[in-house]
Amino acid sequence: MIDVVNYSKLYGEFRAVQDLSFTVSPGDVLGLVGPNGAGKTSTLRALAGILQPSGGTIHIDGIDLVQEPVRAKRRLAFIPDEPQLFEYLTVVEHLRFMGKLYGVRDTEARIGPLLVELELDQKRDALPSELSRGMKQKLAIACGLLHDPAALMLDEPLTGLDPVGIRRMKETIAARARAGTAVILSSHLLHLVEELCTRLLVIRRGQRVAYGSVDEIVRDRPELAGASLEDLFIALTS
């Protein structure tokens, strides 16, 4: 579903990401982890079509993101860590806007259940300035989910959510994966990664240092057997 081969990103002389390759299949939840400045955001942004890769190829649902960006973007959703919303559109108008952009035929029918799922049904006519940080995050996620993306990328999705919201969000992500969506989740919250992700991609200084399920990673590094994910992370990235 998401195929990345030798992806590289240069900023002038600086190599932010170098020859990164990985695959996320339908139903998989890939945890993208690494220390600050490792290249996670550059990778996620390239996968969302925001940044142009300096090298390599990215395919979303078999479509080359560089060659056919519009077709590829119709099949993905990117939810940034800092929700950016249109301040002059209400909650429901945001969803109508996204429905039109993504060519969703039954937008109105989808809006109701989605608002209920994300506990936004009481706020359907609210403007973003009237929403809390967590509500804004939920709206950004609702915008991303409306068109049933084949690939879903989330950057720190739990920021600003209350405990109930966190539980709901985790359920939503897991449900999407069960429905066949390929999910990439970037987070520093290792317990979230451990709970939700089927596989891990650990990067450091723009390079892949580990990739696979925890068992597969431990198989390659037997000295890490029995270590917690936190210890694993520190050992792999330090």
Binding site: A48, I50, V70, R71, K73, R74, Q84, L101, Y102
Partner: peptide
Amino acid sequence: TSLRTLPLS
């Protein structure tokens, strides 16, 4: 960032 994620040329 938001503008570039839109499925539009």
